[in-house]
Nucleic acid binder design. Structure first.
Length: 478
RNA sequence: UCCCUAGUAGCUCAGUCGGUUAGAGCGGCGGACUGUUAAUCCGUAGGUCGUAGGUUCAAGUCCUACCUGGGGAGCCA
């Protein structure tokens, strides 16, 4: 018999047919003659109610049907006489595919703390919350490819292992096959990387951007979507050592084109989630409401779905770094000395400043551009004022910087001069500079932190809860 | 890495000023129950109080160090 997914059954709502369903038990409720099993197969957040006449089944079988057990149930779909659901499955045959010892299975039909579930990350998919998160995560990954494909971008697979450590994006993970205890040494006593696998030191990538630019200056528009690694000792709700990043890179785009793309892209993704993940979003919105019940009214955030609609329907605020500094300096917050860190032109904005702009001043996403060149990367286009670069950060409420991007410096001489100023090894990046030597063009790109975006969409507060198996300092379990 | 904070039953937590035998709800188990919705009701088992030292007649409670979790900061996506 054809197996049906719970999603299919609940969507169609048809009754009368005999079907086969397979899934995991969420709860079982029993009385003298009848048992109700809430069965979930991951296809939707909702469970299928299986009705069991206890007189028709072996007592020991029924005893083994506990939370967590896997079942195959054959039965007839009937209109439900209970109020919680329209359709239910009246069981004729039940096969216990895999029991779950109720004394040992950690996931109970009750509210668990996110910390506890994090320690049981291998089983947390079996909860409503994480089922919803990972279905949404999938939908967003799919929508990203969909968006770029529709807009003529090519998906470029940039390398995970890189020999360049010159990107200036922080600490990297070394990739080596050398014996960590007894590495071969040079006559001077240093580690001899010439006998390593690649004949030179190599690391895990911190960004696919530089290679992305090589693709964009031939294919026109490309994007990367892959894992990214930072060996920073960051312990926050917004950082991972291994995360996924989307990096589009576009030939012939200036900064304005890039802002337009970033805004349209984010809004498309949000609308996609609203259109395709309604059940899961509704659940997460309710979860969030529940979580915030205890908080004072002014600390409560907007309803999740309202927030998503608001961002999808309103223009992002665009202003320069200099303009932002002005606003901050003129704010009452500043005058009352409520900022912990100083606000001064030339100094990078702190989290508190970004949050003030986004959450209190504009109350919507903000795109900041034209940052002082001293606080930005070497490859960013130098503006005519000689002081700023054509950089762009998209700031979201709660999350902060969700996108960082820029127009790239396409002028060979200016780029090399800046690299030398910043002590970036020019000869190691000969291949990157070749794009400026041969047929150089204005071009731009940005990076979107996938997990940070999923945080925003799901309303979750900790980045470790939107990736299946988080990698953070001192944590590589599973 | 820095600052703050927490660690007591499978889970979530209470445990007063240091004082006798360590408490609850949920979950588990046993039973009851005419269709339940995280069912309900009755009963029951379950603890090296994070680890190691120290103070004290006496430590879950106070002190020190370490480990682990959480929050914030920095760095950034």
């Amino acid at each position: 018999m054809n197996r049906k997914k719970v999603r299919e059954i609940l969507c169609s709502g048809e009754t009368g047919a005999e079907v086969l369903v397979k899934g995991w038990v969420r709860t079982k409720r029993s009385s003298k003659n009848v048992s109700f099993i809430a069965l979930n197969d991951g296809s939707v957040i909702h469970n299928l109610q299986v009705v069991v006449d206890v007189n028709d089944f072996d007592e020991s079988l029924l005893r083994d049907i506990n939370t967590g057990a896997a079942l195959a149930v054959r039965g007839v779909l009937m209109p439900s006489s209970g109020s919680g659901q329209k359709v239910e499955l009246v069981a004729r045959e039940i096969e216990l595919l895999g029991p779950a010892d109720p004394e040992k299975f950690p996931i109970q039909p009750k509210k668990h703390s996110l910390e506890f579930l994090r320690e049981n990350a291998h089983l947390r998919f079996r909860t409503n919350t994480f089922g919803a998160i990972f279905r949404i995560r999938h939908a967003m990954a799919f929508a990203i490819h969909d968006y770029f494909n529709r807009h003529g971008f090519y998906y470029l697979h940039t390398p995970i292992i890189t020999a360049s450590d010159a990107e200036g994006a922080g600490q990297m993970f070394r990739v080596t096959t050398l014996d960590a205890l007894k590495p071969p040494l040079t006559p001077e006593g240093n580690v001899d990387f010439s006998s390593d696998f690649f004949g030179r030191p190599t690391n895990l990538t911190v960004s696919g951007q530089l290679e992305g630019e090589l693709g964009a200056t031939a294919l026109g528009e490309i994007y990367t979507f892959g894992p990214t690694f930072r060996a920073e000792n960051s312990n926050t709700t917004r950082h991972l050592a291994e995360f996924w990043m989307i990096e589009p890179e576009m030939a012939f785009y200036d900064l304005k084109d890039t802002m337009d793309l970033a805004e349209d892209f984010l809004k498309f993704l949000i609308r996609y989630a609203l259109d395709h993940c309604a059940d899961d979003l509704t659940f997460l919105a309710g979860r969030l409401r529940e979580e915030e019940k205890g908080k004072p009214a002014e600390q409560q955030s907007m309803d999740l779905i309202e927030k998503l609609k608001f961002v999808a329907e309103n223009d992002f605020e665009r202003l320069t770094y200099s303009g932002a500094v002005e606003i901050l300096k003129n704010s009452n917050h500043y005058k009352k000395k409520k900022f912990q860190f100083p606000v001064e032109w030339g100094v990078d904005l702190q989290s508190e400043h970004e949050r003030y702009l986004v959450e209190r001043h504009f109350k919507k996403p903000v795109i900041l551009i034209d940052y002082p060149k001293e606080i930005k990367a070497f490859y960013m286009k130098q503006n005519d004022d000689g002081k700023t670069v054509a950089a762009m950060d998209v700031l979201f409420p709660q999350i902060g910087e969700i996108i960082g991007g820029s127009q790239r410096e396409e002028n060979f001489d200016k780029l090399v001069a800046r690299m030398e100023e910043m002590h970036i090894p020019v000869d190691e990046l000969w291949w990157y500079l070749d794009t400026r030597r041969f047929g150089t063009v204005p071009h731009s790109g940005f990076g979107l932190g996938f997990e940070r975006f999923i945080l925003f969409i799901t309303g979750m507060g900790n980045i470790r809860d939107v990736i299946a198996f988080p990698r953070t300092p001192k944590n590589a379990e599973f």
